[in-house]
Each structure stands twice: as structure tokens, then as C-alpha cells.
Design a protein around this nucleic acid. Structure first.
Lengths: 260, 260
DNA sequence: TTGGGTATGTGATGAGCATCACTATTCAGC
DNA sequence: GCTGAATAGTGATGCTCATCACATACCCAA
């Protein structure tokens, strides 16, 4: 039973930016209440009973992240916590053998991140970075497993989340293998559209570099495609922010490839 | 509580082969005992208590599969059972929007298959086909979830299995995106090597077509690469069977790509 | 044994996209 | 506001690999 929970950040950050570790105190009962109140209705943590949730929160650490802060480094051996995102956006990425960055996902609030390493206790295979200022809960392994395995509802929730991820990855493999650039980028954009809004805004405004690493194509071609789509009115740009105007078209492209 | 368990096979088989449905009776106590005895030491089902296991088996259906028999069809709506492979080998694959087959995995005995659809209750996104004569247990959704969620050990086991799969898929995305043909094929072969033997035999002898669909390259190039590797002594062929002679080399290639 | 289906071997061709090279633009920090 | 760094736009080039087009080998069943 540990009451405080220390995070050690090691290794090299992706951007080799200076790393500022902001260790919050552990969430006390007060903040626990606050957090409970702000949990989204569809939150995974809602599956827990109030008592379980309170216990879990009491053992968790809350972290405020600035843009660029690194929560987890690929290669870290001390993979002893999972991350529950309260607000903001995280990037999950790794560096391939060839030295190129591959972005696996962007996570939105109320999503669980980094639980894979808890389950098979290997080193971290991906890095987790805040791409906008974010708030996150760090759940220690023991508490996480204990809580999850005593709550049938949350067990199914976590398994469901893992299942969703497997499906998602199957789709990525499909588009990587059989789709041309356009549909691949379309799929990336569709995944980035903020589901909580209806105006086609993204959960985060990626650079073309990031979009390329996410969709699996060269930055230059991201540029070319975006220009083309903008001229066709499929997307719009406000400054550097992207707006998806014709989501339906992009979804078709993402699902059926070039032969829509 | 249902005691018998009916499987409906619908849709079009991948090879459009005639489909023979062999419905076994449900496993009775006798066969349950037999099955328990033959479970591998590392089996997921070993996490269950003898009573739980017996209950699970009593509600399961045992299926004997001939080569080519289809257990699950991509698109099936009645995704209400998972598959536990007792012996043989299964192919998990789907047909992409472009009409090409993508092989996600080959599963070896004691592996769980098809549990994704149980968790998020969508249609089946992949097909499962026996590639050699096989024995499998079909576990109905309700029983599966009930058993799993009442056994903390097996919960963790199933989550671990899902986690393993996510990791595996991350690697596939990596090699698809950044590796050239050689390393991609190497990774496919490494995944196919039978871990229960030490002579470099594969768990199943795929056609070059299948190898291509598994590794993500054209059949013709599979042929070219295999010939090259054979002449270098990295692999050998006995008739149509492949033998991995220099597993270490292939593993290096699979891990680091061309720049080993 | 023969023939048709399936699996394999191998060259030639070209499409798709990464890469390079460079310019133009935007942004953050002093 | 200024300056260097990061981001973005765009043409030219060439490499990798899918595709096409065959030839060949193999297997099983009539």
C-alpha cells in the first residue's frame, strides 16, 4: 500500500526539449470530489462505485501538463502507472527502427492511456506527450489492477477499450497497405475530428509533420493534399487551424479508398 | 442459461469453397475432463478454478475443423461466441475495401480468438478459417463474460492477451510504414516460427500468396525473396515446406530493418 | 496418363510516393 | 519590432515495389 507515488522520467525526449516535471501532491478527498463531479457521463471511471472511485483517486496523482511535457518515455522500464486524461490532448507515439516518428493515436479526455505496459510489464513501447495543456490522473499499477479486478463493470470497460484499440489498429493496417495517400490522410483527419462538437474542429491542431507521422506519409504530400482539399472546399483553414467542412466526403474516402 | 449452442455461418467464404458445417454436441463432463487434461501449462484457461472451468466447458461446443472450414465470417452479425483453439492453426483475415485479403494473424493452440466482437458487440470485422485440421472450443458470450468477470486471474489473463495483440499490431504498423520488403517478410516468418520446436519449422506452411497477404507485399516479391534467402542458407525448403535456418538473422532484419 | 487447377519463378514496365532542394511564411522569444 | 527557428508550399528526381505477362512446376482426380 503506497500512499504517495513517485514518477521517474528517464531517457531522451522526442523533441529533446527540456523537461519540467511537475509533481502534484496526491489527490486528496477534496480534489477527489471535484474530479468526480467533472467526470464525463461516458467516463470509464463511472463504472466504479463511489467508494471504489474515491479509493482509486486517493491513491492517484494528479498532473498538470504544459504543452510538450512528456509523461511517458519509450523505453522506460518503470511502467508502473496508467494515465487517465481529464482534459487536454495527448500524443501517443514511438520512434521506429529507422528513426522516424510514428504517431499511433491522439487521446481525448476521459480516455485511458498507457495501461498496456501494466499488463505485460515490459518496457514502455511508446511515448506519451501532452500536445496542449492538459490535466491527467496517474493511476499506480497495483491500485489500478486491484480496482479493475474487483469491479466487473470496469473490467468489461477496460477490455472494451482494448478491443476498440485492436479494431482501430486493424483499420490502420488496412489503410497503410491498400490505400493511397488521400484516403490515408482522410482517415487521420476523421480520427482527429472532435466528437463533442459539430463544427468540424479537431481535438488538436497538428502540424503537417505530425499529420504525416499519424497518417503515414511524407510532410510534403500532406501539404499538397491539404491545399487541394482546401480549394475544393472539403476543408478550411483559419490561420493554422484546420476545419473539416465536408466530413462525409472524408469518411467515404477513409472507408472505401480511392474507389468511392 | 442455454445448454446447447447453435452456430450459424452466413455470408460468402473467402475462397468460396463449399462449406461443411460440423456441429459437434456440446462438451459433456467426460470430454471436459479430457480437455482439462490436455490443456497446455501456459493456457489461459488454467487461470480458472477446476469448477469454473468445468462450468465453462459444459456450456461450450467443441468443433472439429477440416482444412478450409470457416468458423467466423467477416460481416457476421451474430458475434456471440469466442474461440479457444485446442489444436491446429487458424487464420485471422479480412478483405480490405480494395478487395485484397489481409491476414492479421495465425493463431496457435491455447490461444483465444474472436473475443473482440463479444466486447463491443459489433459485426465481425475479420474471418477465422482453419488452415490445417483443428480442434476448437466455442465459448458463448454470456458464459465467457460471466466466467471471466468472476475470476480476477483470468481477467488479467484476457487483458494481457489483448495487450499483447495491441503491441503486435503496433509492430506491424511500424514495419508496414518504414521497412522495405525484406524486413517485412522476415517479421512475418519470425511470427510463424513454431515456438514449441527448435528446428525452425513453422506452425503452418503458407502459400506465397498467404505470406504476401500476411507480410503486406506482392506474391511475386515473396517468391523473389525466398529464392534469395534459400541461396544464402537463411531458409531451406523441403518440398513446399519452409524451414527457418538462420532465425537470428531474420530476427535482426525484423527488428532493425535494412540497416542492421 | 492426362489434363486442369493451383502454386511458383522471373523479366519488363510504370505508378506512386519519398526524398531532395529550395523558397516563402509564420511564430515565439528577446 | 526584430531575428532565428519552426512550419509550410512546390517543383524535379529517382527508388521501391505493384502489376502485368508469361513460363514452369506441382498436385490431384478422373
Amino acid at each position: 500500500m503506497l500512499d504517495t507515488f513517485e514518477i521517474r522520467l528517464s531517457g531522451v525526449t522526442l523533441e529533446s526539449a527540456d523537461l519540467v516535471v511537475v509533481l502534484g501532491g496526491n489527490a486528496n478527498m477534496d480534489t477527489a470530489k471535484t474530479i468526480i463531479d467533472t467526470l464525463a457521463p461516458d467516463s470509464l471511471l463511472r463504472a466504479l462505485s463511489p467508494e471504489q472511485l474515491e479509493r482509486l483517486l486517493a491513491k492517484s496523482t494528479r498532473r498538470s501538463l504544459k504543452k510538450g511535457d512528456v509523461l511517458i518515455n519509450q523505453g522506460d522500464e518503470d511502467g508502473d502507472f496508467a494515465v487517465y486524461l481529464l482534459s487536454g490532448a495527448l500524443k501517443i507515439s514511438f520512434v521506429s527502427a529507422g528513426g522516424r516518428e510514428i504517431i499511433l493515436n491522439y487521446s481525448a479526455p476521459n480516455e485511458l492511456v498507457g495501461e498496456i505496459a501494466l499488463l505485460d510489464s515490459g518496457p514502455r513501447t511508446a511515448s506519451v506527450t501532452a500536445v496542449v495543456p492538459s490535466e491527467a490522473l496517474l493511476l499506480p499499477t497495483s491500485t489500478f489492477l486491484e480496482t479493475v479486478s474487483t469491479s466487473p463493470a470496469s473490467v468489461v470497460g477496460v477490455m472494451r477499450e482494448l478491443a476498440r484499440r485492436v479494431r482501430q489498429l486493424n483499420l490502420v493496417v488496412e489503410s497503410d497497405r491498400t490505400f493511397s495517400m488521400g484516403p490515408r490522410l482522410a482517415r487521420a483527419l476523421v480520427r482527429l475530428v472532435d466528437q463533442n462538437r459539430d463544427d468540424g474542429q479537431l481535438i488538436y491542431n497538428p502540424s503537417q509533420n505530425d499529420l504525416g507521422a499519424f497518417a503515414g506519409l511524407a510532410r510534403e504530400n500532406v501539404s499538397r493534399l491539404l491545399s487541394e482539399w482546401e480549394s475544393q472546399g472539403i476543408i478550411a483553414r483559419e490561420g493554422r487551424a484546420l476545419l473539416v467542412r465536408d466530413a462525409e466526403y472524408l469518411e467515404l474516402l477513409a472507408e472505401f479508398g480511392d474507389d468511392i
